[in-house]
Design a protein around this nucleic acid. Structure first.
Lengths: 329, 329
DNA sequence: TTTTAGCACTGCCTTTCTGTAAGTGCTGAA
DNA sequence: TTCAGCACTTACAGAAAGGCAGTGCTAAAA
């Protein structure tokens, strides 16, 4: 347990460092703490021994440790009210009637990235648990059709199909009817099996152009398995002074391009969770704040990546605002 | 006009520098040129006076100038045969029967980015000139429908629509039939006008839920106007030794995130065009090689961004291969 | 017991200097 | 025209020096 005075000192140091990105000296806090620098130094020493503060070198000012940020986040930080400018910009998106929920999420996170100068990520849901609602084929011209698959959650995938020779409208219709009959109501997961063992044998017999059609649908279905990912403001996090180093920047950029990013961003927990430095699986020098959202019974994750020296209170408030507005819909 | 010997010297220097990224000394070329370093130095001096070579400082080796690269590209460089490894990787994509042309382009450029360690970009077409082929609405549940629009070129856009209260299937069908009747065959460009002045007045009278439906289609149509852009391997160009500097990297990343990128990448000319350094509008320190492609009568651009010290011959060969394979389809 | 003024100390940062390596340009002879 | 030899230049790496911004410690004051 730490004393009242230690707590307010920690608060000052964390908030000063968040703002200025420079180690905080004892002298700088004299006025606010109403005591001499020596007293503050002594107290800083105590906080360092507990592990809440660190020095960058033996005679430097203090910097919060990960544990220090953690303590700040868990015990000191107070919920911040949304400032009016942030509020205004978000409200126009959130209240926009003509946007569907998914677009609201994407847009909001774009805005938040701009407002905070951090990087935001929206992980879309994977649709493989969805059930097939309808399969549709629309002829384009003599050799081309578009195959469209809609799921019970309203997801849509389409594939353009080139059919050599000549499209036999009747044949195509036959195939589509067959597919519709056999796979509507089946989960995307198991469609390929049904296609392979039930649809293929039948259309093989009756329909000439079965193979291209079959392939196209097969591909359309496999596209549902892809988790969508949208990253906003990659550059923002790179502009932070802690990443003033070519190799560090390259490292981070590489991680953003890595396909494994989904794994390290995805969130299972329902609350707004903060992963400071080594607490996250992405990079020890960043903090990730993320939360799961549910739309139409399907999960996704919204996340924000910034330096450990992050405006925690503001970010949490912003994410809360978005989360509440999503969940209400 | 430059001499035969000067030309082969320039060739050696350009190719050495492309390979090693270090200023080329006179001594290093003695063996190949079969003369002393002094002779080579004299010749280098001549090439520098013409403006084809540069020094990084007064006693450094030589580096090609932009003009030097230009001369190399225009007069010296020989078409390179596709090496067997590159060929193999690309062929599996290009010959994949189940992929449509657009996916072949995207995949190929992904591969090329990996093979060359440069950054590739695919600018998709804008569909606003397309004609509406069909409008379709598929009910999902009591309150939700999916609106789908297909164009005569096979482009598809969809919007999920939440309808408060209860979906009146008959009403929706009525609206869709009306929209189909009035806008099929009309260009995406002019759809909003027709919606506003012809569709809206009519559905306003007959259909209760007209407004949400109307809005959804309106949004779906405006999405066609967006030019698609896909960037592969941003990190690749940043790994090049010439960008070993935090601020330069940040500058380039910012340019990649800038919406104006479309303007500086788009290509009007039909050939494979090379823009070295200040010749491009993107960044003076890079070379952009790009070409227009046409699929289904619609244009797009494929481009490759790398350091000015680029493997010109290999890249041109790769792009040529892709271009030929696209055009043949 | 807590606070504080004073002081010695430390590491970072910047500048200056130095030596070395890797180049060049020039010149006079082959 | 070529080239060996030499004087010269710059980049780069390392060492030395001074200033700066901090600290920890101690002994005295509150």
């Amino acid at each position: 347990m730490i004393s009242k005075r230690q707590e307010s000192l920690l608060k000052l140091i964390v908030e000063d460092y968040i703002k200025n990105a420079r180690p905080v000296s004892s002298k700088a806090l004299c006025n606010i703490m109403k005591c001499s620098s020596a007293t503050i130094r002594a107290e800083m020493n105590n906080l360092e021994e507990i592990g809440l503060l660190e020095k960058t070198h033996i005679s430097s000012g203090r910097v919060p440790s990960e544990k220090g940020y953690r303590y700040y986040v868990d015990n000191i930080m107070e919920p911040k009210k949304l400032n009016s400018e942030d509020m205004l910009k978000l409200q126009t998106i959130v209240d926009n009637k003509s946007l569907i929920v998914n677009d609201i999420i994407l847009k909001s996170m774009e805005i938040i990235s701009e407002l905070t100068h951090y990087t935001t990520i929206v992980l879309g849901k994977q649709s493989s648990e969805n059930l097939v609602q309808k399969v549709e084929v629309i002829p384009i011209d003599e050799n081309n059709v578009v195959a469209i698959v809609v799921t019970d959650k309203g997801h849509v995938e389409h594939k353009n199909i080139y059919i050599p020779g000549h499209v036999e409208v009747a044949e195509v219709k036959q195939t589509v009817d067959l597919i519709n009959k056999l796979i509507v109501g089946i989960s995307i997961n198991s469609v390929s099996e049904v296609l392979e063992y039930q649809v293929k044998p039948i259309i093989g017999k009756y329909v000439k152009q079965h193979e291209v059609l079959y392939n196209a649908f097969y591909n359309a279905f496999s596209d549902f398995a892809n988790e969508s990912i949208k990253v906003n403001g990659t550059k923002n996090i790179l502009m932070q002074p802690e990443f003033n180093n070519a190799d560090k920047i390259r490292e981070i950029i590489s991680k953003f391009e890595d396909k494994d990013i989904v794994g390290s961003i995805k969130e299972e927990d329902n609350g707004i969770n903060i992963y400071i430095g080594s607490e996250n699986n992405f990079d020890d020098d960043v903090t990730i704040i993320k939360t799961k959202y549910i739309v139409n019974g399907e999960e996704g994750t919204i996340a924000l990546i910034g330096p450990k020296r992050m405006e925690y209170d503001r970010v949490v408030t912003l994410l809360n605002y978005i989360k509440e507005n999503i969940d209400r819909k």
